[in-house]
């Protein structure tokens, strides 16, 4: 509970920082809204209606006041409540993030463990080779290659688009598979590597020797003794991975034309839509802080020596 309370000042700092950063970057939302033919007169009027002519501190005060009441403000560009806008876009992003996470963990942890167990063999080298590949290839390249192969050549998956969960589970998941794989490649590479290193280190520990001396089968030694002890660094990296996912989501959503938060962010930044940008970043950082909290709690569950 105390740790939950400690997240509030963190979020406050983020909010302040984002607000000031946006005001300091060049570009004028009013000019964007007025379009290419807007006269200085029109721009000034727009500035006034948006409240952008007030001093920065007053703007900040208004925004913070609204925030405390749970009001994220009105989008300049979409002319809608930002809260409503985000809620509309949140499902695709969350769906994409979760499927990516599931694929990543299901693939990365097993291959990491196997690579560690068989370290030095061709299997290990294959996993490591894939991992270097996964790191080096940019997300959009993987995305287009996958689209070309599985969507255009084999016609197994649709090229682009998104269907809501409400439209049925199969169409929903069918359209998510390619984007999730695309996004997960780099995380599989990362987490497989960490798993391998971490398990490899644990395999050298004395208690693993004890476990073998007890006459336990290899599988039990590997899963019950080695993996559990190697879990803390793995979970840490998975957590960081989830946070990094957010940046990956932006690109992947563009490639696969998914109407999620990533796309919303891109549109909002291009339109200098201050309230939307601020809100999206605030939501992302809130998620980030929550994930960190969750990871910390997992630690003490995984390792009885860690107590908060």
């Amino acid at each position: 509970m105390r740790r939950l309370a400690a997240t509030i000042p963190v979020l406050g700092m983020v909010a302040l920082f984002v607000f000031l950063m946006l005001r300091m970057t060049p570009g004028d939302p009013a000019a964007v809204l007025a379009g290419d033919n807007g006269t200085p007169q029109q721009i000034a009027e727009i500035r006034e209606t948006l409240g952008l002519d007030e001093p920065i501190l007053v703007q900040l005060g208004i925004w913070f006041g609204d925030l405390l009441q749970g009001d994220l403000g009105q989008s300049y560009f979409f002319k809608k409540d930002v809260t409503e806008l985000i809620l509309l876009r949140v499902e695709p992003t969350v769906a994409l993030a979760i499927t990516t996470l599931v694929i990543t963990v299901l693939v990365a942890v097993p291959i990491g463990v196997i690579a560690a167990y068989r370290h030095g063999t061709w299997l290990d080298r294959c996993v490591m080779g894939f991992s270097v590949f996964g790191f080096s290839v940019p997300v959009f390249v993987v995305g287009y290659i996958l689209i070309y192969l599985f969507a255009m050549q084999f016609k197994m998956f649709p090229v682009q688009g998104y269907k809501e969960l409400a439209d049925g589970f199969w169409p929903f998941i069918h359209r998510l598979i390619l984007p999730s794989i695309t996004l997960s490649v780099i995380y599989i590479a990362l987490i497989a590597r960490i798993t391998r290193a971490s398990v490899l280190e644990v395999l050298g520990e004395d208690y693993i020797r004890t476990a073998y001396a007890k006459g336990l089968p290899n599988r039990v030694v590997l899963l019950r003794h080695a993996l559990r002890n190697a879990a803390v660094p793995i979970v840490t990296v998975i957590g960081i991975g989830v946070a990094l996912l957010i940046s990956g989501v932006v690109v992947t959503e563009s490639v696969y034309n998914i109407p999620g938060l990533g796309r919303l962010t891109v549109d909002a930044v291009l339109g200098r839509d201050y309230p939307t940008i601020q809100a999206v970043i605030l939501v992302f950082s809130g998620v980030y802080v929550l994930i960190n909290l969750l990871i910390d709690l997992t630690y003490s569950f995984l390792d009885p020596r860690i107590r908060y």
Binding site: E205, D206, Y207, R209, T210, A211, Y212, A213, K214, G215, L216, V220, R224, H225, R228, N229, L302, D303, P304, R305
Partner: peptide
């Protein structure tokens, strides 16, 4: 192992699995 021949080691600090309760570690045998 552990039925006809058993082994104990030098470092009691590291020879036991830190994330498993002591009873459970004997129970495994």
């Amino acid at each position: 192992r552990c039925t006809r021949m058993s082994m104990i080691f030098q470092e009691p600090m590291t020879a036991l699995n830190p994330v498993m309760s002591c009873g459970r570690q004997i129970d495994e045998v």
